[in-house]
Amino acid sequence: MTPTLVPHHPARDWAEIQERMLVPLYEAVYDRLGVGAGSRVLDLGCGSGLALLMAAARGARVAGVDRDHARVALARERLPEGTPLTADLPQDGPYDVVTAFHGTAALGRDPAALTRSAQRGAALVLAGWGPPERCATTSVLGLAARLTGWRPAPREDLDGAVLAAGLRPDGSGRVACPFGYADADSAVRGLLSTGEFDAAVRATDPGQVEKELLEALEPYVRPDGTVWMPNVFRYVIARVP
């Protein structure tokens, strides 16, 4: 395959292509925690707001934190008018469910500050990649990394992050989140929108990164041209003391 070099719009590609891949994760967490009418949900790293939209559809009051202005602008278009969307922790808590579906970085430099936005006993959910052997996308990231000379960040220690933040562990789970795309070009756009390749793009020619990604995706292209990569994501639940 050869790269098409279609212009990329990372925020919109995330909202239109990639974000939906984590819907099974959002649903599993909300089901387990009983999110619904009366819940107050704060999503750290809310992006373009799909997880918040799903919580709001269950009757929850929602708020989001994200510093990506382009993604937040898209979130404002889809969420109920007046939904608090801020760059830092909002002051209108406390919340009884706090989610960080995209890893530990959403906790920020001062994890203890989170407890000031969450009520006592509130659930904090951290999520990230599951075991590498059960994540096809991990091999794509790894192969593209080797070809471009870039090294991806190590898999996050979700349990360690919970303990470091002084929170009480309260269970975990795994959820199948296959990444499916209409074609290889859509897969490249979706994967680039995750931010996983930002360092590689800065370090080399963007067209070269796209070319390597297309080659890495070849084992997952089906006869009809669609791309299918089985993945498992893991989440941990902690309680605010």
Rank of each mutant, 00 (worst) to 15 (best):
R78G: 13
Y95T: 03
A106T: 00
P94V: 10
V97D: 06
T83E: 06
G82W: 02
E81K: 07
L107R: 05
G93F: 09
E81N: 10
D88L: 14
R76S: 12
L79G: 15
F101L: 09
L74F: 08
P94Q: 10
R78I: 08
A87R: 14
A87Y: 00
G103Y: 06
Y95W: 10
V98A: 01
D96N: 14
A105G: 06
F101P: 00
D88C: 14
R76V: 00
T99H: 03
V98L: 03
A100I: 02
L74E: 12
L74N: 13
E77C: 06
L85F: 12
V98Q: 01
V97W: 01
L89P: 09
Y95H: 04
H102V: 07
A75K: 07
G82V: 00
P80T: 10
A106N: 01
G103N: 10
L85G: 07
F101S: 02
F101H: 11
A87K: 05
P84Q: 12
Q91F: 01
G82F: 03
R78K: 05
H102L: 05
P94S: 15
L89Q: 04
T86I: 04
R78L: 07
P94N: 13
H102R: 15
L107P: 04
A73F: 04
A87P: 00
G82L: 07
T86N: 11
D92F: 02
L107T: 05
D88F: 11
P90F: 12
V97L: 07
V97E: 06
A100K: 02
T83V: 03
T83S: 10
V97H: 10
R78F: 02
E77W: 00
Q91E: 14
H102S: 06
P94W: 08
P90S: 10
P80Y: 08
P84G: 13
V97M: 14
D92I: 00
A87N: 04
L85P: 09
A87S: 10
G103A: 09
A100M: 04
D88E: 15
Q91M: 11
T83C: 10
A87W: 07
L74H: 12
L89K: 09
Q91V: 08
V97Y: 03
F101C: 03
A106H: 02
E77I: 08
F101M: 14
R76Y: 01
G103D: 12
D92R: 14
A75Y: 14
D96Q: 08
L74V: 14
P90L: 02
A73S: 15
P94L: 10
T83I: 05
R78N: 05
E77T: 09
G93N: 14
A87C: 03
T99S: 08
P84F: 00
P80H: 10
R78E: 02
T104K: 03
A100Y: 01
A75F: 15
G82I: 04
D88H: 15
L85N: 08
E77A: 11
T99V: 06
A106G: 02
V97A: 05
R76P: 13
T104L: 02
A105N: 03
Q91T: 11
D92L: 13
Q91D: 14
A75R: 15
E81Q: 11
E81S: 13
P84K: 13
T86P: 09
T99N: 09
R76W: 01
A75H: 14
D96C: 09
Y95E: 12
G93V: 05
A75L: 13
D96W: 02
Y95I: 05
F101W: 12
L107M: 11
T83L: 01
T99L: 07
G82N: 12
E77D: 15
L74W: 01
D88Y: 13
A105H: 05
F101G: 06
